[in-house]
Design a binder for these strands. Structure first.
Length: 619
RNA sequence: GCGCCUGUAGCUCAGUUGGAUAGAGCGUUGGUUUCCGGUACCAAAGGCCGGGGGUUCGAAUCCCUCCAGGCGUACCA
């Protein structure tokens, strides 16, 4: 191939980055994932009971995934914790659901776990023994920050591509959703026992750089390129893009500049490298504020040469719809929505680089799951690309098996009125500015509520609230629906904001602190049974964490976890109110209640951890 | 035009691998408390699940169709 070689300095710079990324990802792969068994004892017992009825070693789906919460207004004289609908099991066992439900209730071995188990038509209603739940609470406290982990992803590698900002531009809030959702999914995968690789696929190549370099030449030739900051670069880029629409000469200039860059022009490459380094520094600052660390940050530029070679091979490797034009070197994927791989001028575009990236991951990281956290508007694009990748064998793993490619889309980020964010109207902007704004508001609120609080402490709390509010607001609804950005709502107490959950957490914290200082409260063994229905329910719900995390992981849906945490907040409110501790004469009961507060804190800490929302003992 | 997504309480949203009388929060109305921390808790009212048709023991969920909104629709990423 007559592709020109790039200057050594450029290669060396890039090579350093690549090797570091690969090494880091490799280290991550080798580190064993922390895991824990998923099922609870009573679930295992229930599963065994049903298996016994099946009579043989018949494969049954997990009981846990079939359990539902009984409807609040079911006509029952008692309160079950769970209901097991027998429909599916009955189908599998070729039995009548009503009869099967009745049969399950007859299993005497279940009496140890359930205080009541009763069939209601085709449903088996179950109420757990207090002792079972109190044991569970003990387990929560023992496992601490590892509580909620499970093992269902054990031995598997999940690569999550997310954030992927564009170099030479400020980190805008348009990249917020990918960043927030991606990090949360990465954490969920990790908690579910997967080995996780976080991959930041930087937008650092393409004709956009030709345009940027051309813009520099047009509008700011007197300035050294490297002296321009990203705001300035963005300004000239936006201006160039506007004027390019009506001025074909500018469009040509942009293409020429990219051609020179691609051919290895040392001056242009130096400019490009300066922009890359500057952006990396800026991105790092943003990621630090959000507590995000990538294992690998390899930009698109790295895959450009591989992409060119790969495109030429696609038809012979079995890509049915790839069309190559021998004369112009143009290439595209034909189909309902054609996707260009290489332009008529012979430059690979992002689609070709994306394919080369898949090949690279196939050989370097060999992941079982590859998750692309990119806006929903690119859904059809990814479908097309993935299909080609499968056709030409890019998803077949060297060790056998397949690399599962999956696009995780998400809806738009809208302003408070529900309008699309716009740079021109000033409703869109830099992510850091938005965080600063939230930070300041949170600080004012915190100091107003706590006039005596140390200012430094208030500052650090406000920082956490700001980041937490930002993330919570994004993750609280289903990914595919759009999200509104309304600062008032995000920082309000009530309304299901992050403040609600941080508030209940800090309330438990301060209560436990008070108990520690209270001479009348002494550590003892907890009571053997709960004193209120709320305590019972709270304990049962707290014990669902790992199942919820598993579900959220499988469905790639952090909002499932958020919904669960919101339920807990409600239960906690009632519990806190009903079950006072100070002044309670029964020391064992007081201890049980204190344990519930500790367990609550543990579960909230794990749950918020999976969402990447920072915790604070005070608020 | 074609493709994908969305439409559920006044508002913001859960629930969509079919399952018991469709659930939360905010707001509204009424009540209790002002006691371990932004007071909190309890209760009520509020729904032709966008319209229509179909599938079956059973549909917000599956299928068809129509309506409304959003996004995408090749040489940008």
């Amino acid at each position: 191939m007559n592709q020109p070689l790039r200057p050594d300095g450029y290669k060396a710079m890039l090579a350093g980055q690549i090797e570091k990324s690969i090494a880091q990802a490799e280290a991550r792969r080798r580190a064993p994932a922390k895991t824990a068994p998923l099922g609870l004892e009573w679930q295992v017992a229930l599963e065994k009971g049903v298996a016994k009825l099946a009579g043989s070693d018949g494969e049954l789906p997990g009981i846990a995934s079939m359990l539902v919460h009984p409807p609040k207004n079911a006509k029952l004289s008692w309160l079950p914790d769970y209901a097991l609908p027998a429909f599916e099991l009955a189908r599998l066992l070729k039995q009548n659901p009503m009869a099967l439900a009745a049969e399950i209730t007859n299993d005497v071995s279940l009496a140890k776990h359930f205080s009541k188990i009763e069939a209601a038509g085709p449903y088996v209603n179950l109420r757990l023994q207090d002792a079972e739940l109190i044991d569970g609470v003990k387990t929560i406290l023992k496992q601490g920050e590892n509580y909620g982990r499970s093992n269902f992803g054990e031995g598997k590698v999940a690569l999550v591509e997310f954030s992927s900002p564009n170099v030479a531009k400020p980190f805008g809030i348009n990249h917020l959703r990918s960043t927030v959702i991606g990090e949360s999914l990465a954490r969920l995968f990790g908690f579910s026992g997967f080995t996780v690789i976080r991959d930041n696929h930087l937008g650092d190549w393409g004709t956009q750089f030709g345009n940027l370099l051309a813009a520099h030449q047009q509008y700011a030739p007197e300035r050294d390129f490297a002296s321009l900051d990203t705001d300035e670069l963005n300004a000239i880029y936006v201006r160039f893009s506007q004027e390019k629409k009506t001025n074909p000469a500018l469009a040509r200039l942009g293409q020429e500049m990219f051609a020179k860059l691609d051919a290895g022009d040392p001056v242009l490459l130096a400019s490009w490298a300066a922009a890359l380094n500057m952006s990396l520094k800026e991105f790092k600052a943003v990621y630090e504020r959000l507590s995000i660390e990538f294992d690998t940050q390899i930009g698109e530029s790295y895959f450009d040469k591989d992409a060119a070679a790969l495109v030429d091979q696609l038809p012979e490797r079995g890509a049915k719809n790839v069309v190559l034009d021998k004369k112009t070197k143009a290439a595209y994927i034909d189909g309902e929505h054609p996707v260009v791989l290489r332009t008529q001028d012979g430059y690979c575009v992002y689609a070709a680089r994306d394919l080369a990236t898949i090949a690279f991951r196939q050989q370097t990281y060999t992941p079982d799951e590859v998750i692309y956290v990119v806006g929903e508007e690119q859904a059809s694009y990814f479908r097309t690309i993935f299909e080609v990748a499968r056709e030409v064998g890019l998803t077949t793993l060297p060790q056998g098996g397949h690399m599962h490619l999956e696009h995780i889309g998400f809806g738009l980020l809208l302003d408070r009125e529900g309008k699309k964010l716009s740079t021109r109207k000033g409703t869109s902007g830099k992510l850091e500015d938005v965080i600063d704004q939230l930070d300041e508001r949170a600080y004012q609120e915190t100091t107003a509520r706590n006039p005596e609080m140390d200012k430094g402490l208030a500052r650090s709390i406000a920082k956490k609230i700001a980041v937490g509010a930002l993330i919570w607001n994004d993750l609280r609804t289903d990914r595919v629906s759009s999200v509104r950005f309304d600062i008032d709502r995000m920082l309000a107490l009530g309304g299901g904001s992050v403040i609600d959950i941080l508030y209940t957490y800090s309330r438990s914290s301060s209560l436990l602190q008070k108990l520690a200082d209270d001479p009348e409260f002494t550590q003892t063994t907890p009571a053997k049974e709960f004193s209120t229905e709320t305590e019972h329910q709270l304990a049962a719900r707290l014990l669902e964490l790992s199942q919820v995390i598993r579900q959220a992981t499988i469905e790639r849906a952090p909002h499932i976890l958020v919904g669960y945490l919101q339920d807990l907040v409600q239960l906690h409110g009632r519990f806190y109110e009903e079950s006072r501790i100070q002044g309670v004469s029964d020391a064992h009961l007081a201890q049980l209640r204190a344990d519930l507060h500790r367990a609550y804190k543990t579960v909230i800490a794990s749950g918020l951890g999976c969402l990447n929302i920072p915790l604070t003992e005070r608020i």
